[in-house]
Amino acid sequence: MTRARKPKLAVWKFASCDGCQLSLLDCEDELLAIAGEVEIANFLEASRAVVKGPYDLSLVEGSITTPHDAKRIQQVRRASKTLVTIGACATAGGIQALRNFKDVQEFVSVVYAQPKYIDSLAKSTPIADHVFVDFELRGCPISKQQLLEVLSAFLYGRKPNTPASSVCLECKRRGTTCVMVAQGTACLGPVTQAGCGALCPAYNRGCYGCFGPMETPNTVSLAAWWQTELDASDLDLLRALRTFNAYAGPFRKESEAHDRKQ
């Protein structure tokens, strides 16, 4: 395909661990090919060279946690034709959204000796709470294959193919015996979105929800199953639902129900 000019790619970081943008550098076999198809115009982790916007595609990692970042995301949106969020922090607020259930000032004083130097918002919020997002890629971390799918879908102007079904379907495809039914291992697979390839059950552990809630998950039914069949307590459920996607609607609501019962 010939183009008048290469599309400009930018990668932005907000509050996060860096892992999702590292996924791009982890595409060892594809990285140089990607650099041939797009102009890597602003990707600080990889390059000193920064080309001015506007950018055709912005990948945004991380959540909004400071007043400064709440302003910066508006600038990023204005400079971007298409904005795709990558990972649980950018799509759900990340693990740092655990503060949303507590008083943030209490958190500041646990970690920092001089809390007055810390400028932090009360909540850690996903990018879509602040600006229009064209597409959200899930995962903590994202899957490399899904990232490549999003990049090529963008290049060819089509919708990315990333299923919103549950991890259970991936287990069936992989031929993994259900760890919950066969071994009584607590698993979030039935309510968690696919994308990781059902890794955990293949390693003999229950899914712990890295890709966040699937489309229309029945969390009430799963929680009841955990409690009646697996003897899980409300605290067990609270902890399981409150990790990297704690602030995503269905996980948040279900965890709040168990928080009240404790």
Binding site: F14, A15, T65, T66, H68, D69, I95, Q96, L98, R99, K102, V104, E106, F107, V108, V110, V111, Y112, I118, S120, R239
Partner: peptide
């Protein structure tokens, strides 16, 4: 260093 603080040590309290 401007990295927004993420308070790991605080939210580890009360976890298993």
């Amino acid at each position: 260093i401007y990295e927004p603080p993420r308070f790991f040590e605080a939210f580890l309290q009360g976890r298993a």
